[in-house]
Each structure stands twice: as C-alpha cells, then as structure tokens.
Design a protein around this nucleic acid. Sequence first.
DNA 1: CTTGACTCTGTACTTAAGTACGGAAGTAAG
DNA 2: CTTACTTCCGTACTTAAGTACAGAGTCAAG
Lengths: 135, 135
Amino acid sequence: MNETTETLTIGVLAEAAGVNVETIRFYQRKGLMQEPDRPQGGIRRYGDADLARVHFIKSAQRLGFSLDEVADLLKLEDGSHCTEAREQAERKLADVRARLADLQRIEGALQGLVERCCAASGQVQCPLIAALQAA
Amino acid sequence: MNETTETLTIGVLAEAAGVNVETIRFYQRKGLMQEPDRPQGGIRRYGDADLARVHFIKSAQRLGFSLDEVADLLKLEDGSHCTEAREQAERKLADVRARLADLQRIEGALQGLVERCCAASGQVQCPLIAALQAA
DNA sequence: CTTGACTCTGTACTTAAGTACGGAAGTAAG
DNA sequence: CTTACTTCCGTACTTAAGTACAGAGTCAAG
C-alpha cells in the first residue's frame, strides 16, 4: 500500500506546488528532493510524496529556515528524532526573536527621525540627514 | 574655512570607520563616495567629510536602507529636500512595520510548534515535521 | 638604497535562492 | 507524420553587499 500513483510530470508538479519547474530541479540538485527513475529514457513521473516534500520546504522557508536548515530537518524526517527537531526549532525561535528585537529598535529610531524631520522647519539641515550623519 | 584637512590614507579612513579598505573602494565604484584627486600619481588623501559619509552610509544601513536607497538619500543631502527625505523614511518605516508583523506571525507559529512538539510523546511522527508537511 | 608596508587598478570570487537558456530528445494532438 | 509543447541536461546569469587577489607603483624608515 506504499505505492502511491506517480503520475505527475515535473511541469504539473511545479504548477501544483506553485513553484517554477527550475525550482524543482534546483531542489534536486541541492539534494532536497530526489529524482524519480527515468523509464528507459522517458519522462520522470512524480507523486504525492514529492508534492508534500515541496510543501514542506516552502513551509519551513516561510518560518525562516534556510534551505541548508531544511536539509537538516529532512534528515530527521523519520519521526524518531523529535528532540533534535524541537531543538532546531527552538534555535530558530530564538533567532526570530532576536531579529524582532532588532527591527523594533529600528522602528523606534525611524519613527523618531520622521517625527523630528520637518517639525523644526527653517533648519539649515534636515534633521533626518543630520542624525544619520552623526550616528 | 571649507578646507578641512585631508590627511587620511584609505587604510586609516577604513580603520577609523570600522570597515574594510575594499568596502571604501566598493562605495566609490557605486558612486556613494567620490574619490579625491590623486596628486601626480601619488596617494589619495581623505578628510573628515569622507569619514562622515561612511558613518552616514552605515547608519542608514542599520536602519534597513539598501545601498541604492542610501544613494537616493544622498541626493537629498543639501538639506533643501527635507520633505522627500521624510517621505522616504516614512516608506521605510512602513516597510519595517510590515516585516515586524511577518516576524511576529512566524514567532507565534514556531512557538506553537515547539510547544506541541514532544508534548505528545509516543506519537508516530513528530508534530513539528507533520505540521510542516501539511501546511 | 633597499626593504616592507601600503596604495592603486582591474578583475574575479563569494553566498543564497533561484532564473534563464540552448540544444537534444520525448510526447501528444491533429 | 508533422507540429508544437514538454522534458532533460548542463551551464551561465541574477541580486546585494561586499571580499580577495595579482601585479605595479609609491612612500617612509633604517
């Protein structure tokens, strides 16, 4: 019962996954997906597992994982490495929180600049430019 | 009184600005800084204005501006385009806020995954992996 | 006057995540 | 059977922000 029907061409698979055909090939070259056998010089066929794999990659990317990190996650795929997977997700979470803190500092600084800018008119120099000059 | 002393070599300038010599040259190629004249095939000298320029670029980068955007800001440098500068900063602020919102969604999703992961032990598959599979 | 450090110039390489292309071969419709 | 579309394969190009390097010239100290 493990034989899911492999009926999709690469073009249909790409379409279904919402990515470019070249992206599929690129993932294959990267080792993120393996290519099905080619029946006597014919055309490769793909199945639901391949579609799920593309979804996995894209979901992980949306959560901020790089393709190299996705490759690490895929090594844990058999389900017996739950702890490692969680640890990696925790590292990524810490990472995301650090980036959040950075962006919040930047937001505050930009907002301050925008408010000061042109509030004081008749100035020799634009406060925004001056602030960047000095910082 | 506009003649600030131009005494720094490119190495000293880079050191003072905390960047690589090659970075200075790269900014010159990009048109973000102009190169001082070369006295009869000699060595170029840099002054405080050049140092301020590097600081400006680096500050703007820290606020999330790309080098192309920095180039745009630099065109407004004479102080008579305060409004344009503010508009650009406002666009960047909106941009930063959008990225903040994205990251916050990601944070929530990752945190949820980490919490569910291994909370349910004895599972066939790791919930984190399964969630990415399905998403 | 030589040595070693620095500068100048141009070109090439780096990373990440793809995208584009050219030519050959397979495949489906009419 | 021909035409048109895909697929396959390998290679090259893209963007951003630099980094690295080779070969030639310059400069200051000893």
